[in-house]
Design a protein around this nucleic acid. Structure first.
Lengths: 181, 181
DNA sequence: TGCGTGTCACACAGATCGGTGTGCCGCATC
DNA sequence: GATGCGGCACACCGATCTGTGTGACACGCA
């Protein structure tokens, strides 16, 4: 009764908000425990170390993309519109996976592995859509569109301007069009 | 005689290496002083705070691009080849400005301002080349190519694969070609 | 009623953080 | 030789870091 949500979930909710918003290195475990409304002791009973907590935070950030009934090429472009919306929401702080690799620097083996999984999943998703769209070289084109996506995220982070998402989408549209027939 | 290089330069050389390679938050002032071969006291006599040291580190990272006699469109594409070379060099750790904004998170006002200056300079440089190349919408195209550049950097950081630079270059070539005539 | 469990608050360890104060030493200049 | 000064070593400050140990309290269950 005292626990509305299970311990691990409450911790993860706090860790997600704090790590993403303020940065992994900038947030101590005390802060996470306080935000979760639990004691540091309970946190360490649930996660053996901060590294494990960070890994769980990143793994939790991997979410499957919702299915769509748009035509495949439009689905690819819609990814950029979703990015545009996400940024306008105000709490955008870049890609948590890239951020983790950046922050952890020389201690980012685990983070990099998780980031690679995520990026590769997304690239494959784009590639499968492009195959259905019948374009030439769908694998390479998927990588290039993923680059535009990544670039839009990084640029939004420093420029604080959502418009780059639309510029990226337009560029992606040009690339797709150039690969048609 | 004891000082082969002036104090500030020795500090900056150490700070540049450490901040870029290991991250700003991950490196303390003691480490910088030790790497520079000076005392922490002397460091604080030269830079009033770590924030000032970080700002100097970032400002020093802004370097003018060398002139080139290639045709303008080729110069734009050459930027990606240079990125490819830089990555192959082995000590690539992403864009120091984006990294600083990522690491400093909520305390990144100064870093973001410097990053914006740098990114805008580079975008303008690309735009002026595109104007000379006579393409349509050179300003927008410059932004889109800058996005590819940013995306290549972020992707190299997590994938550790220099090939993305060439994929980005190819995509840029397609965008430029689509904007010709 | 008594026991076990889960969680709490709290204090602590040892390290590191950014930043400062102090006193000494080598050296150049007068 | 005296003086001043730049740089050094070193100790220290309070705060924070990750991680642990402890003892108490509240609860479910027998």
């Amino acid at each position: 009764m005292t626990e509305r949500a299970p311990m691990a979930e409450r911790i993860m909710a706090a860790a997600d908000r704090l790590f993403y918003q303020k940065g992994i290195r900038a947030v101590g475990v005390d802060t996470v425990a306080a935000e979760a409304g639990i004691s540091k002791r309970s946190l360490y009973d649930t996660f053996p170390s901060k590294d494990a907590l960070v890994a769980a935070y990143l793994r939790q950030r991997i979410q499957p993309l919702p299915p769509s009934d748009l035509p495949p090429a439009a689905q690819v472009l819609a990814l950029f519109d979703q990015l545009h919306v996400r940024f306008a929401h105000g709490d955008f702080r870049g890609c948590p996976f890239v951020n983790a690799v950046t922050e952890l620097a020389e201690d980012c083996e685990t983070a990099r592995a998780i980031a690679l999984d995520y990026k590769e999943d997304r690239r494959r998703h784009i590639a499968s859509l492009l195959v259905r769209a019948g374009v030439r070289d769908p694998e390479v084109l998927a990588s290039q569109i993923a680059l535009l996506f990544e670039g839009a995220i990084a640029s939004m982070l420093v420029r604080q301007d959502a418009e780059v998402a639309l510029q990226a989408r337009d560029a992606a549209a040009v690339l797709i069009r150039a690969a048609e027939t």
